[in-house]
Design a protein around this nucleic acid. Sequence first.
DNA 1: AATTAATCCAACCGCAATACG
DNA 2: ACGTATTGCGGTTGGATTAAT
Length: 277
Amino acid sequence: MQNKRRREKTMGRAPCCDKASVKKGPWSPEEDAKLKDYIEKNGTGGNWISLPKKAGLTRCGKSCRLRWLNYLRPNIKHGEFSDSEDKVICTLFSSIGSRWSIIASRLQGRTDNDVKNYWNTKLKKKFMSMNQSVEMKSQQVTLLSILQNSTISSPSSLSFTGSFSYSSAAASSSLLSGNSFTSVQESSTGPSQSNSKGQINHVIDQELVEKYDNDDDDDVAFVAQNISDVDYLYNGGSVNQWIEKENGLWEENPFDEIKELIRTNTTSRCNNFLFDE
DNA sequence: AATTAATCCAACCGCAATACG
DNA sequence: ACGTATTGCGGTTGGATTAAT
């Protein structure tokens, strides 16, 4: 790829930057000030490649973009993640995998890099320890073992049966993607309440799932109508919003938003470790 | 107090998708 | 329609900091 790029230098647009003369490494406060000042006054101009020169920086455009998006941009939230943010991350990770930009978009002021770092350094361990009490059943794979054994970016050929503490999004998203699973058992609800048994379960028959394999809309309708034993779902909206059934019916289709995000943000990627190939 | 190990996180890299000429 | 430039994303790295010995 790089050789190809080099060859193409002679014609077409200029390359994004000359790596030899571009500064790398941590940003100084002066550089931060220059970048912030320039963007606040002029915007990004829709072209990151030419921005550093205009802003008086000897940085690659890519580096400027990253610095702005992850650190300098207004309303960035730093510091501790709240419990509700944890829930959102766990829920969405279980349903869509390591799609950090999508997950971050559900958390106000958080960046994909932040969420990714937080997951990799802290939340994954927390999440896994919560699952450690789960009994392994023969020929069934727990979320813990999936997390321990899978390369997240690679879809694994697994069926999932395990304990998941937050919502049934894992099951639903598998359906949305046209993939299948055998069953999901949930150990508790997302919100503070639990049902009378202290446990919420649902099991979806794989044959039924396969019936709806290739039609997203049907999948969603199917899921929404058939998760009869689940009382709460995270709705993919702002932090800690959960959808609750009323009179046994979902007030709105709980999966529309996540489905739309997946639809608009991806075409071919499939990072969900719960998916069958 | 010194050393080592573990953790955290900003930044980089390469790839794929999208925009554009 | 095609090829290249640019953007956006996720994985990874490496330096700084903190904890443990």
